Simulated scan of single mutants.
Amino acid sequence: MEAQLLGKYRAVYYQCNSCQFIQTEQPYWLNEAYSSAIAGLDIGLIQRNEVSVSIVQSVISRWFDPKGQFVDFGGGYGMLVRMMRDRGFDFYRYDTHCENLFSRTFEAVLPSDEESFYTLLTAFEVFEHLVEPMEDVSLMLRYSHNVLFSTEVQPVNWVPKIDTWWYILPETGQHVSLYSIKSLQIIAERCGLHYEKGQNNMHLLSERSVNSQWFNGLTNWRGSQLYNQATRNRRPSLINSDFARLRNQKSDANPFVR
């Protein structure tokens, strides 16, 4: 399969005969593709975050420790981190390609041992950007053994053609890895983790097995909202304490600021 990327680069896509995973040739065009970290065509960024925060809240409340620490991998402008902190969850951001606009100073630190692992790592609209997926998943697992992520999988019985699946997005040149369900299951097996697929293109790699029906329901935006309301799992917002922390840092840096 071939496509013209960024309107000028001819690139070849290769598919594994065994697991149907698709990847481009070595992506020599990425410096240009990421001249802006967030693609201009990505007009759904705010809506995705609004949907994701409710889902993340319900998944954490159902299966993980809400009092733990969490990291958003490939966190972009830091919007999800800020929104989750506003909901009372101690979230931090990791991203080496994008400026942190909304959650400055809340950067994730690579754990030094298993005692300091993050409870859960989120990675939304990240997997399709990975040039070396197994290497990057291994890095994610150094932060947490539980990874909640989103990526659109190949349509069932899809015959690979550039113009029959919008998610390839050759216009941006950023989607270089395209997954099938089988390929994600193989990643889980290689990492010794359980794999679960939900709605809204949500997936979970986890050291624990979760109930499929529950995960399917809680990754539905309306289902997650109903669950959050029914279980009253709302936590005190961190916005006031975060503001105080940032203000103190400003004061420490400038003794004339009071």
Rank of each mutant, 00 (worst) to 15 (best):
G192K: 04
E132A: 14
A33N: 10
F256W: 12
N201Q: 13
I168Y: 04
A244D: 09
P133E: 15
T96S: 15
V109F: 04
L101A: 03
Y28N: 03
I22K: 01
F73S: 01
D136Y: 07
V159H: 14
N17Q: 12
L139K: 15
A123L: 10
Q15L: 01
A108N: 14
R62H: 06
E125T: 01
L80V: 06
G7D: 01
G68K: 10
V109R: 15
M84Y: 09
W165P: 00
I60L: 06
W214L: 08
V257G: 00
S237E: 08
G68H: 08
K182L: 12
R208V: 10
R234L: 10
L5T: 04
K250S: 10
V159D: 15
D72M: 10
L120N: 05
C98H: 07
F102C: 04
H194F: 15
F21L: 15
M140K: 04
G78M: 12
G44R: 07
E99D: 13
L193Q: 05
S116E: 12
D95R: 05
L204C: 12
S237A: 11
W166Y: 09
P236F: 03
Y13H: 05
F64W: 03
Q154N: 02
S116V: 11
T164A: 13
Y14L: 15
H97T: 13
L41A: 03
M83S: 12
F117D: 08
V56Y: 01
S138H: 09
L184E: 11
Q23A: 11
T231H: 09
T119M: 09
H175M: 10
N201T: 04
S18D: 14
R222L: 12
S251F: 07
R222Y: 10
M140E: 06
I46Y: 08
Y179Q: 05
I181C: 05
Q229V: 11
S209R: 15
Y13S: 01
S54P: 00
H194E: 11
Y28V: 04
Q154K: 01
N17K: 14
L204Y: 12
W63Y: 14
Q229W: 08
Y94R: 10
P255T: 08
L169D: 09
L184D: 10
E152D: 11
F117S: 11
Q213T: 15
D163W: 05
R234H: 11
N254M: 11
M1H: 09
S224F: 05
R87T: 02
T164E: 13
N233G: 15
I38G: 00
L169N: 10
T151S: 02
T105L: 11
L120M: 10
V51E: 09
V59P: 07
